[in-house]
């Protein structure tokens, strides 16, 4: 067992529930490396919703919360407001974050609350058996789209940026060091951070989208289909998906600070009367 992973994991609950070759383990490793580099194990809490990717935090040996479907960001906001000194990391999937939890993502981004959302995008509903998700590419034959998916896929980073997220980046699991750096930067950033990770699902997405069982080959396909850009110019560039650190804005005020200011003002006014 890796010594660093061993330090952060509940060893009694091993092995992980993930299928062989799942990208969630790599996201977990990158997060562990980022937390270790910052030295904030005791001051961090992880929140997740429902889905394959939401099984990442329950293995961590720190404060974790496994909540209801789609509401991971809502729970995280509540936790942040009650404990403003904690660093909150939300693990969520494409279905959890963009389908049922889409409205929470919009509002958290609009408020600019200081949480870090890591969205693991595997292009499909993996846990329930391979149904079409909001990010499934056009013409993919899944269980619920047997004649090919018709809808235009939703771009998570595009949604977050247009809703006003102040930190946004997208990497694949084939770029673990860049991902590690992005997570570290997202945690230290004072404001809403959105990090999308393109991840392989060798079982469900491998069956219906990539037509490939080998996890490494899917990772290579995702890497080949991505192009690195330094700033946000749309989700697509020459038919390839853009990846990179898209946005970092420091001007906007953070939500918990605003709430604290309002609280102080009300207390001051009521005492002055």
């Amino acid at each position: 067992m890796n010594t660093l992973v061993e330090k952060y994991i509940k060893k009694e609950s091993l092995p992980y529930i993930f299928c062989p070759g799942c990208g969630n383990g790599i996201v977990l490793n990158a997060t562990i490396h980022a937390i270790e580099a910052l030295g904030i194990k005791e001051d961090t809490a992880c929140v997740s919703g429902i889905g394959c990717s939401s099984w990442i935090p329950p293995y961590l040996n720190m404060d974790v919360m496994h909540t209801i479907h789609g509401r991971a960001i809502a729970f995280a906001e509540g936790l942040k407001l009650s404990q403003p000194k904690k660093n909150i990391i939300v693990f969520t999937g494409d279905g959890d974050c963009l389908a049922i939890g889409g409205n929470h993502l919009l509002h958290a981004a609009k408020r600019n609350i200081n949480i870090t959302v890591i969205m693991v995008n595997n292009y499909i509903y993996g846990m329930t058996g391979g149904q079409k998700s909001p990010t499934t590419p056009i013409d993919a034959r899944t269980k619920t789209s047997p004649y090919g998916a018709m809808d235009e896929p939703i771009d998570g980073c595009g949604v977050a940026i247009s809703a006003g997220a102040t930190f946004c980046s997208r990497w694949t699991v084939g770029h673990p060091n860049q991902l590690k750096k992005a997570i570290r930067e997202g945690i230290t950033h004072n404001g809403f951070s959105f990090i999308e990770v393109l991840s392989p699902c060798p079982v469900q997405a491998g069956k219906s989208i990539f037509k490939e069982r080998d996890s490494w080959k899917i990772i290579q396909r995702i890497k080949e289909n991505a192009v690195v850009t330094s700033k946000w110019e749309g989700g697509d560039k020459e038919g390839k998906m853009t990846i990179g650190n898209f946005k970092k804005e420091l001007k906007r005020k953070e939500y918990t600070e605003k709430i604290q200011n309002l609280k102080d003002e009300i207390i001051y006014k009521s005492n002055g009367r």
Binding site: N2, E6, P15, Y16, L28, N177, K180
Partner: peptide, 11 residues
């Protein structure tokens, strides 16, 4: 290999 192993097996 350490960071790419999804099960954290390699040290």
């Amino acid at each position: 290999c350490e960071i790419m192993c999804p099960d954290g097996c390699i040290n």
